[in-house]
Design a binder for these strands. Structure first.
Length: 888
DNA sequence: GCTACTCGGGG
DNA sequence: GTGTACGAGTAGC
């Protein structure tokens, strides 16, 4: 029988482990296979001549079933011969850590290997099983009540099957509504769940969603329950019946799942939402705000976490995320309204709350299903071997390590154990002293380049290719004084054994990954089915991610194979390469390299026509590549028609790419933020427009005029207030804030006006800064209130604190001075004064009234204090400068 | 310019 | 479960 592996775990039966494999067969039926007879083991390298002592020690241990001498290769440092090690086999995985720790401290043991590999992964590695991979099992049906599956079987033989297909998965999204007694976030110890909404893909018995509730009216998709206990019991029953493979929800890992599990525990309802009755689901909060759930036989995938990892947005609330990604609206119910609706006694209001909950679960589901958010992680599982759950939750190091284990074992190498905390701090100190140098960044020719084209050349997969071309691997590193033809010396002087003597494992793995990636990319070009094309793209991305993780892994102090020399060897090769290329381009070809970072170089050519530039770029690429070794080649894929460089790592470019013989253009920005959560929309809009004018029209004067126009509109109150709203969130009760914070001051104000509608803890407050002569933080105001009362916004604040800082960087790179930037005119001269002072000296600290001593962060436009006194410039020393701020 | 600390998302 | 844990963005020197 063939199944796709979704999850594995093990149970202990008669003091021996039984591995359980949960999967889906070709008809998408659920299968659970039991594999008996597989036992945990690890390796010991005895100190010189002390193998006998180790054996005597092991023979005294009742947990040990057997031990035997085996020949294994040490993973660190090149050696021609394997070493004699002792392989210990135990009966129970749970006893391994104890034995491992006692062996580690035994004086006759030099090093212990593979003694910290999860039993299920030990099993999967030995049987070549990957998460989401297909296997063929010889098996016989078995009767059991311990697992919930369409079929349960005893497995006698397993072999991996190579298949790119995926079984149809069943998805269920969960969303709960709760009421909070405290007023803050609900607490499962205190507060109960009032609504559970579940949504399904594919449909569950013809229904897209079901809402469980203790109030409201029964219908096809609304189930009225007596109490919370019944609601939770029914949720369990629905889960059993529908039998989802994937459980999702928006922020389910940090809210819904822990909440539900805690309520189940408190109400003594079994927590068996997984595919077995003998193991409860659990969540563990690792560090604050970082919980992870485990539901046996299923996968918990948090759509919030998936969106956050795969898209770059300003905010990640369900409202914004579904609007952008799904073009769907969430039903809006402010959380303060939930209890009002719930307790209203009004059927319609309760129905509205029910539909709100339903929509939330549907959106959470749609995100995962419609945006195919799991595809990349499914591919990562197939490649690395990790279970899907761990591909979703784990980091890059976990993936690399799991893959390394399999590949090392294939060639009789053993993997080291993870370093303990004292070893990690030792490595951190080493890394601190020796340092890990990064890529080389060419000094940029700051400013606008629009007099000709820019040819952009990149090394494709630079670091992975360096592993390959220098045969860099922990297993090939040579540390002694040896030299000679068998040894490759890298530019920084690190040495590795030549590939024809012995190929490194990392170079070998990377060769496979790079090849697979080009295959996937090629297949993508001809694939017409949109769905399949997306899967190929996910695979291609997974391959890129995984191959790019190897370099970082070797420099990660918690890695089993952290080797700083390798990380340093790689970046040094990279710097050497890009250096050589730059030198060739500038000194031999006679072009100007205007910028470059790590693996890329931007070359200015006189041609202005795109096709001519394309020809020239290709020629430059060919000339460079003919001088490089075959393994390291540069690619020419894009031209910049104009290129605005602000500093290292910050630039904007008008990019042109040739696709199927046609030119496609795009603005490319690196390191220039146009959206930031503490900037109002006007800033983003003005920045984008300014950059666009500069790049596409090449007219810096026009850009400046545009900017001056925005400032003018601002002072003349012509900017819609919506574009001036700044949002910040309230994280704790307003009274407990130590300092004065603008948005908190506004909340206090709003509470005084109407405590009912004032935002509370956890809410985001949108505010604007209005004119006035008080401290900035006192001049925050509710945008609606401003509209209603026709208050004026403070243009000085918006120019000074919002617009100017980012825009100034752009104009300064273009060679403008601040006074040119601020223009002339009465208001502007004040702005100029405010701007100029802190730049000249850093004694500027705000404004002060000469008569009453009131302090202002920005000067009142009247130039006078409320008391009528003159405003002067204040310095930190307390001394007030004699300069009086002119009135406007 | 760098390092330390905070906060997200959910009700 | 043979366990292990974030990361961007902002404030503060």
């Amino acid at each position: 029988m063939k199944i796709q592996v979704l999850d594995t775990d093990y149970i202990i039966l008669e003091d021996r482990p039984v591995v359980r494999i949960f999967g889906k067969d070709e008809n998408s039926k659920t299968v659970c296979g039991f594999a008996r007879g597989y036992l945990p083991y690890f390796y010991i390298l005895p100190a010189e001549g002390r193998a006998g002592d180790i054996e005597r020690f092991l023979s005294s241990k009742p947990d040990v079933i057997k031990y035997e001498k085996v020949l294994k290769r040490h993973p660190r440092g090149f050696s021609r011969e394997p070493k004699e090690m002792i392989k210990v086999t135990l009966r129970n995985p749970q006893r391994v850590s104890e034995l491992r720790d006692s062996v580690k401290t035994h004086p006759a043991a030099q090093e212990v290997f593979e003694a910290d590999i999860l039993f299920k992964y030990r099993f999967m590695a030995d049987y070549k099983i990957s998460g989401m991979g297909w296997i063929d099992m010889d098996c016989a049906d078995v009767n059991t009540h311990t697992v919930k599956a369409d079929r349960a079987v005893n497995v006698t033989k397993i072999s991996p099957v190579d298949s790119a297909t995926n079984a149809q998965m069943k998805y269920m999204a969960v969303d709960i509504e709760t009421l909070s007694k405290s007023g803050g976030l609900p607490d499962p110890k205190e507060d109960e769940i009032i609504i559970i909404s579940l949504s399904f893909f594919p449909e569950n018995r013809g229904q897209k969603s079901i809402v469980l509730t203790t109030r409201g009216i029964n219908s096809d998709t609304v189930v009225r329950c007596l109490d919370e206990t019944e609601m939770l019991t029914r949720m369990n029953a629905i889960t059993d019946d529908y039998d989802p493979d994937i459980i999702t929800g928006f922020n389910i890992n940090n809210f819904d799942m822990p909440f539900i599990l805690k309520r189940l525990e408190i109400l003594k309802v079994p927590r068996t939402i997984g595919r077995c009755s003998d193991k409860q689901a659990y969540t563990k909060e690792i560090i604050k705000n970082r919980a992870r759930s485990s539901v046996p036989g299923r996968v918990v995938a948090d759509s919030y976490q998936l969106v956050k990892k795969n898209f770059s947005f300003k905010r990640y609330g369900l409202t914004d995320v579904s609007r952008i990604l799904l073009k769907q609206e969430k039903l809006d119910v402010a959380h303060s309204e939930i209890s009002k609706l719930w307790n209203s006694g009004d059927k319609d209001k309760i129905a509205r709350l029910i539909e709100y909950a339903r929509k939330d679960a549907e959106l959470a589901l749609d995100l995962v299903v419609k945006k195919q958010l799991l595809d990349k992680y499914i591919e990562l599982s197939k490649l690395s071997g990790l279970l899907l759950q761990d591909s979703l939750d784990g980091g890059e190091a976990t993936r690399v390590e799991n893959l390394l284990l399999r590949e090392f074992n294939k060639r009789d190498y053993v993997m080291p154990c993870k370093p303990d905390s004292s070893e990690i701090s030792k490595k951190e100190r080493e890394k601190e002293d020796q340092g890990l140098k990064g890529g080389f960044v060419l000094t940029p020719k700051v400013g606008l380049h629009s007099d000709g084209l820019i040819v952009v050349l990149d090394f494709r997969s630079m670091y992975p290719s360096i592993f390959r071309s220098y045969n860099i691997c922990p297993t090939t590193i040579v540390n002694g004084p040896e030299e000679g033809p068998e040894i490759i010396k890298t530019p920084a002087g690190y040495k590795f054994i030549a590939k024809d003597v012995q190929e490194g494992i990392m170079p070998n793995i990377l060769g496979g990954l790079l090849e697979e990636r080009s295959k996937a990319k090629r297949a993508m070009k001809t694939e017409t089915d949109e769905e399949l094309r997306k899967v190929l793209d996910a695979k291609q991305l997974a391959l890129k991610l995984l191959s790019n993780s190897f370099y970082g892994y070797t420099g990660y102090t918690k890695a089993k194979l952290y080797i700083l020399d390798i990380a340093n060897a790689i970046t040094a090769c990279g710097r050497h390469l890009i250096h050589t290329v730059t030198d060739t381009v500038e000194n031999r070809f006679g072009y100007e390299a205007v910028y470059g970072d790590t693996d890329s170089i931007m070359i200015k050519i006189p041609e202005k026509d795109l096709d001519a530039g394309w020809e020239k770029g290709t020629e430059i690429m060919t000339r460079i590549n003919s001088e490089l070794s075959g393994a390291m080649q540069m690619e020419f894929e894009k031209l910049f028609k104009s290129f605005l460089i602000l500093t290292k790592k910050r630039y904007a470019a008008w990019k042109f790419v040739k696709e199927n013989g046609l030119w496609k253009e795009k603005t490319e920005m690196k390191g220039i933020e146009t959206v930031r959560r503490d900037w109002c929309e006007l800033v983003s809009e003005t920045m984008n427009k300014t950059i666009e004018i500069i790049l596409k029209r090449g007219d810096t004067k026009e850009a400046l005029n545009y900017f001056n126009g925005v400032m003018k509109d601002l002072t003349e109150n012509k900017i819609p207030i919506e574009k001036l709203v700044i949002t910040k969130s309230i994280t704790k009760s307003p009274s407990s804030y130590a300092g004065v914070q603008p948005h908190i001051e506004l909340v206090k104000k709003m509470q005084k006006r109407n405590s009912q509608d004032a935002p509370g803890v956890g809410d985001r407050v949108g505010y604007v800064i209005i004119k006035g002569n008080q401290l900035l933080s006192k001049r925050t105001e509710d945008p609606d209130y401003v509209k209603e009362k026709r208050l004026e916004i403070d243009p000085v604040y918006y120019v000074e604190n919002q617009l100017l800082p980012p825009i100034e960087r752009i104009f300064i790179a273009l060679g403008f001075t601040k006074s040119e930037l601020l223009g002339k005119g009465r208001q502007a001269s004040l702005m100029e004064l405010m701007r100029a002072r802190p730049a000249q000296s850093n004694v500027f600290d705000g404004f002060v009234c000469a008569s009453c001593g009131d302090i202002f962060s920005s000067a009142p436009l009247t130039g006078l204090c409320q008391c009528g006194g003159k405003i002067q410039i204040k310095t930190p020393s307390g001394a007030t400068e004699k300069i009086t701020v002119p009135a406007v």
